[in-house]
Design a protein around this nucleic acid. Structure first.
Lengths: 236, 236
DNA sequence: CGATCGTTTGACGTTTGTCAACCGTCGTGG
DNA sequence: CCACGACGGTTGACAAACGTCAAACGATCG
């Protein structure tokens, strides 16, 4: 949270309290399964995870990729059964905490409550961007938007990333995120490569023509342009 | 909020405070425009509204339909510029309030803060349901899901609604919500009618075979199955 | 009464999915 | 050490779903 505002000692302590415990999650492991009870929330410390749902016909929709610093499972915490599955795309480290800890923060730290709401709204807007992409843009635009989003979010934790990054996803996973088949994702990636917008060498993607990609995708970075001047005063 | 928990007098007073003012919004009017500054939030009191985004090519994605009791514009409140447009689908009444009032609630009423978070998470899950629908289901399923969702949400404010309701949307609006063209929406509606799943008489839709519709749509009502046992204690 | 809007329908085009085959890499167990 | 199988990527032929264009109709409103 300290990227958005300077925290008071009391607020920092409350957050550190959430991150007391650590749990390692192996690549491919499931942290929380759709339709199962789940009393824990998590903060992702290291690695890349995803949330997804499975439909009746067995197809999968990836809802969101999760990066270090993200809070996982708020939506599951308000339901008796989790509405989505959380799974690790790489070896990860998470800090589990329970719903009572969330309630304690909301009672004792109004500004942190507001920041949790802010993060959940940033996520909401990112979801609506993807909704618009799935509803109204071409396969090519969706793949381009996904690459831009991945790069932008990876850079938030690893400043060394510039135009090139290791794409930790299979083409099937890209397809499940963008509403396409793996075969068509492959065609789109190749087309982006052939037209010079991206480069690819064994899992590594290079954004070679970022302005053209942004135009193709109408991508907006939702972590900039915030207005937090209205946040309540910290209590301690 | 009082549908989910019994409010204390202090909490009720804080909410009544938000609804002090009233503003009438005519059908078709825009309450908030994408990319414009907006310092107000709203509670919808009467009528039907929608939020949408416009893409570069002029196409529109409707993100969400808004019903009485919904809070409008939280996501816009955290940005300098609104990420979405709010427009009235029928004559409406809204209660505007400012961001400072939101901050006051978060400071003074921890349980209301938590409930605001709960509502924003219900909305989040509804958005992910729609994301999965757009990414992974057929045009027929998406239209069926929209009809079920509309009926379910209309019934929340009007208990007299059973299987039939007045569909206050054009087929173009249904298309913009489901990621289809108006022409194809028409074909799907006619197909649902011909196969006996729905009936139609001039703007009125009747869900004639609800189990079959639910199967066609894999629809989940996200306003049931909540677990709010963890909510913080009310302060006053 | 004309104009506009929403709906309906048909013919046709494009995008995307499906199916199938093949390739290279990697890990594993005989 | 090698053979095998699993997995992910690549490619082509074909099919299905959905979009585009165009025309006509009825209702509503000024």
């Amino acid at each position: 949270m300290n990227e958005l505002v300077a925290l008071t000692p009391g607020e920092s302590a409350a957050l550190d309290n959430l991150e007391e415990r650590q749990r390692h999650v192996r690549r491919g492991a499931v942290l929380q399964r759709e339709n199962e009870a789940c009393n824990e929330l998590f903060i992702l410390r290291k690695g890349l995870m995803m949330s997804y749902v499975l439909l009746d016909d067995g197809s999968r929709q990836i809802l969101r990729f999760l990066f270090p610093g993200d809070i996982l499972g708020i939506s599951s915490a308000i339901y008796q059964e989790a509405p989505e599955t959380l799974a690790a795309l790489s070896d990860c480290v998470v800090s589990p905490f329970d719903r009572a800890a969330l309630a304690d923060i909301m009672t004792g730290h109004p500004r942190l409550s507001a920041l949790i709401l802010v993060y959940s709204q940033i996520e909401r807007v990112a979801l609506t961007d993807r909704l618009a992409a799935l509803g109204r843009t071409s396969a090519r635009a969706r793949v381009a938007a996904l690459l831009l989003e991945l790069r932008s979010r990876l850079r938030a934790t690893d400043k060394s990333i510039d135009n090139a990054f290791l794409l930790g996803l299979t083409q099937e996973e890209i397809g499940d995120a963008t509403g396409l088949t793996a075969v068509h994702v492959n065609r789109m990636l190749r087309q982006l490569e052939e037209t010079g917008l991206i480069g690819r060498e064994g899992g590594r993607v290079t954004l070679k023509d970022e302005p053209a990609l942004t135009r193709a995708a109408n991508f907006v970075n939702r972590y900039v342009g915030l207005d937090l001047s209205w946040l309540p005063k910290p209590r301690s």
